[in-house]
Design a binder for these strands. Structure first.
Lengths: 202, 202
DNA sequence: TCCATTCTGCACCGATCGGTATCTAAGTTT
DNA sequence: AAACTTAGATACCGATCGGTGCAGAATGGA
């Protein structure tokens, strides 16, 4: 029987891996996967290339882990929105979260899940695929939530969960692009309000 | 008085500059500014680096010219939409054109004006700025067109041309992102229809 | 105390980046 | 034919790319 080893032998790492990952996420968010060089990344993380490779594997894995952190951090609004009691509140919270996260003054404008690797050469193809899967996953969760709403008579029987989910995701993605172009929070919230004006009534 | 010289002295270029630019546009469209290397570009254009530099200046200028060609080619739907007789038809044609152009089977998925350089490192910053200006210009044209519609009582007096323009642009940008993720033409047309369901009545 | 292990800092790897120099061949004007 | 300009091919430039090898420092277990 092995007892749980709390501290692995050897010299412990001299940096906070979570904090380093946070900084890497911000660099990817601002510059995209291909636009973020290892020099940019490790510079912001405050560690050397060697330490980065030992802790995170390689650039591609670092990106995946940064995306995970993004999901649980800045993009956590999506998971919170899904827990709202009604479909309308889900949609409203989802777009409101999208607006506020893409226009945070202390973070890069836009959405890592969109601009992290929207178009890419060969070297960024894996990151591109990861983001496509990420957006698909978000859309699937919305679809399931709206299917549940239909089942609960929270949406009219004729409502199409698939379409509603894609519609919301499309608007959110557009908001992210607009944010990169410098659109303000209030401008985008108006757009979100407009997009919800034709939401199916209960 | 100089007479207009039709053919400049020296050996004429041995390739079709328009066709070469078309191929460069397709590469930028698919891989983005930073993701498209000179090797990729000149390979698709069928010319050498030297010829490319002589004909187009450098990579950045090549991108600007490819964007112009994109505007007059695949993205010409936008200019055509602006000439529709009513605001509603403008909006409908704009989104329909956005859907069909981002899902053309013979072209890369998505929109060059969005994915050409959404996020970028230092080297892609100029292309990024060019695309932001490009999208701003499209939005301004929509705004002017809707202001005209308000003046002509083609839109209700309370309609906000600025908001309507940004709303349409946001949906179109979202459609472009969705197209990259593999959304089909009919799926996106449904989204476009949904987005127009709350268009202000005359 | 000594060893094993892992960290850090730095130099370095081959490959590729955008961009050029150099050469010959070719075509058009004067 | 002379003058001029460009095409095409090749080789090259310094810089940067993602990724490593190595030596030394630091820590845990024995």
């Amino acid at each position: 029987m092995e007892i749980t080893r709390k501290a692995p032998i050897g010299r412990p790492r001299g940096f906070d891996a979570d904090e380093a990952l946070e900084q890497a996420m911000l660099v990817f968010w601002e510059q995209g996967y291909e636009g973020a060089s290892l020099t940019d990344l490790t510079g912001a993380m405050g560690i050397t290339r060697k330490s980065m490779y030992a802790a995170f594997g390689n650039k591609e894995e670092l990106f995946r882990k940064a995306l995970e952190r993004y999901t649980e951090g800045p993009a956590a609004y999506a998971a919170r929105a899904l827990e709202k009691p009604s479909a309308r509140e889900v949609a409203t919270a989802f777009l409101a979260g999208s607006v506020s996260t893409t226009t945070r003054p202390d973070c890069p404008a836009g959405c890592l899940g969109v601009q992290g690797s929207l178009a890419a050469g060969d070297s960024g193809r894996a990151a591109q695929d990861a983001l496509i899967a990420w957006r698909d996953d978000g859309r699937a969760r919305l679809r399931h939530r709206f299917q549940q709403a239909v089942d609960e008579d929270d949406l009219p029987p004729g409502a199409d969960p698939e379409l509603l989910a894609r519609y919301l995701m499309t608007v959110a993605n557009g908001i992210a692009v607009q944010a990169v172009g410098g659109a303000t929070r209030s401008e985008l919230q108006q757009v979100a309000d407009a997009a919800l004006r034709n939401w199916p009534p209960v």
